[in-house]
Design a protein around this nucleic acid. Structure first.
Length: 499
RNA sequence: CGGGGUGUAGCGCAGUCUGGUUAGCGCACUUGAUUUGGGAUCAAGGGGUCGUGAGUUCGAAUCCCACCACCCCGACCA
């Protein structure tokens, strides 16, 4: 059998493979704090690229950044009934404001109990709502389009690096509008922003849809999402956008005077993506040799490995590499300077190569004396491990952008093809059960079937450990028969095992 | 919170059943030599409160008791 850099392989043990990818690519590790991760430089660099790209998209659609407190007074959370129900079970609570020596004087204990406990934000609707209520007085103050980059905490029972950790990084957009139509349009617009980002930058095909009523964000009127398929055929919710109606506006008192001087309640939205997307990125493209990064999200797009035997060669080769780096960096790919790194560390060539392969760098370039004599370089693509090709330097420079584009597009096509091959239209409950049959059948994929958007249908799917993911927005709106209830269903629904 | 399991070097483990020199092995790390265009070889090194506490014993990683932590399986979740 062929030797792979990662053991076990995806086929042997998918969850363990996922963990090993993170170790091998040096993305993150578990911290001393239960459920919280340390994001290491290579992983954080990916997050920074996500932030930069998304931030541009948010600004382009008229949003501005602001920052709100980490601590939320308990009473705020209590304002919205459904919201409380949804988050109460997973809140970290701050009850004291100082430490004093304990009885035996060997340690410290909390002291100075607070009159009102704080909750570490699991999300910020309520505290931002409080601010919004002060900021909004007139219809002229609307729409209010705010985004915050922050960390949040949800006390999770079981955690997995990136996919579910107690503390995670995200952005949360919060907007207030004068009319329902505007707020709905905002919700849909941001969903499209997420979808475009996922597909264009992460090369991760997504299904845009609306969550069924029993999967909604606590307190929302409608929740929209983008759903991606991982290589084990499970679904991952990669982003959400909520139309909150007037629920939070009423709870927080976000009111404005309209043109006629009448007091009206605003309509709000919220939307977010998190470091979870990194988990999705990993599981969409990576293979048994490590992480595979689409160029647009790769912290380094080219890594140059100088090869030499002595100091004299070293000087010559390095100078050549420096020039090559400069020439590449002078070019713009997808709106950014091409990112190039020269790895001149004193470690064995083979080991060095494999390190970058495992880190998912799209293109490696080897430069030695032999190449310099021909004014050519060896080019190795991450999407074709094992192949390496001598390319004239001039040709590499003129085709660098095309090369990155080709790799980017190739990864998207491959992921799309995979997902489409694992999606099936289902027309009956029998067929549905067959599709998801078997205890650990991870090859089921996405089932698409007519289903009514009513509570109760979960009972049919729960025993199969399947969840209703969403009602795709692009379905053609021809009604059909619900496979669970036999009633007329206006929309199709996607079902899958999920993260 | 139920059921199962594991704590020994940075990581992965053996040793525990059957107590007995200085607690081992692989990987990683350091140094030197030979190497170097796809995961090098040899040699020499450094690194340990054996999860914590209390006990049994001449003697405990090993046996007894208590506690703690973590992992896996279930209910909740971006």
């Amino acid at each position: 059998m062929e030797k792979t850099a990662i053991t076990p392989t995806r086929g042997q043990n998918y969850p363990e493979w996922y963990q090993q990818i993170i170790v091998a690519a040096d993305l993150a590790e578990n911290s001393a704090v239960r459920g919280c991760m340390v994001i290491k430089p290579w992983g954080y660099a990916i997050w920074e690229l996500m932030q930069q790209d998304l931030d541009k998209r948010f600004k382009k659609t008229g949003h501005v950044n602001a920052y709100f407190p980490l601590l939320i007074p308990l009473s705020y959370l209590e304002k919205e009934a459904e919201h409380v129900d949804g988050f109460a079970k997973e809140c970290a609570v701050v009850t004291h404001h100082r430490l004093v020596p304990d009885e035996v004087n060997v340690g410290l204990k909390p002291d100075g109990e607070l009159d009102e406990p704080f909750v570490i934000r699991p999300t910020s609707e309520t505290i931002i709502g409080e601010s919004f209520s002060k900021w909004v007085k007139s219809y002229r103050d609307l729409p209010l389009l705010i985004n915050q980059w922050a960390n949040v905490m949800r006390w999770e029972m079981r955690t997995r690096l990136f996919l579910r950790t107690s503390e995670f990084l995200w952005q949360e957009g919060h907007t207030a509008h004068a009319t329902k139509e505007e707020a709905v349009a905002e919700t849909e617009q941001m969903l499209k922003v997420y979808a475009a980002f996922a597909e264009d930058v992460l090369a991760m095909p997504v299904i845009q849809g609306e969550k069924p009523c029993f999967e909604r964000f606590p307190g929302a009127v409608n929740t929209y999402c983008i759903e991606a398929m991982m290589q084990d055929c499970k679904a991952l919710q990669a982003g959400t956008s909520h139309f909150l109606g007037q629920n939070f506006a009423k709870a927080s008192g976000i009111q404005y005077q309209n043109k006629n001087g009448e007091l009206e309640t605003a309509w709000t939205t919220s939307w977010g993506v998190s470091t979870r997307m990194i988990g999705g990125l990993i599981m969409t493209h990576s293979d048994d040799n490590g992480l595979v990064l689409p160029p647009r999200i790769a912290p380094q797009q080219f890594v140059i490995q100088p090869i030499y035997r002595n100091d004299e060669q070293r000087a010559q080769v390095l100078a050549y590499c420096q020039q090559l780096k400069q020439d590449l960096e002078a070019q713009v790919f997808a709106g950014n300077e091409i990112r190039v790194h020269i790895d001149d560390r004193d470690i064995q060539g083979g080991a060095k190569s494999w390190e970058w392969i495992k880190k998912g760098v799209p293109v490696r370039i080897e430069v030695g004396m032999r190449d310099i004599e021909k004014d050519a370089v060896m080019v190795a693509r991450r999407d074709a491990v094992g192949s390496k090709q001598s390319t004239p330097r001039a040709e590499l420079l003129t085709s660098a952008i095309a090369l990155l584009t080709e790799i980017q597009d190739g990864l998207f096509s491959k992921a799309l093809e995979f997902r489409n091959s694992k999606m099936r239209e289902i027309n009956s409950l029998v067929e549905f059960n067959e599709f998801f049959a078997g205890e650990n059948n991870i090859d089921s994929g996405f089932a698409i079937a007519y289903a009514v958007d009513e509570t109760g249908i979960e009972e049919f799917i729960k025993p199969l450990k399947v969840t209703a993911r969403c009602m795709p927005l692009d379905n053609n709106d021809v009604a059909g028969v619900c496979i669970f209830t036999g009633k007329l269903a206006s929309k199709k629904m996607v079902f899958a095992k999920a993260y």
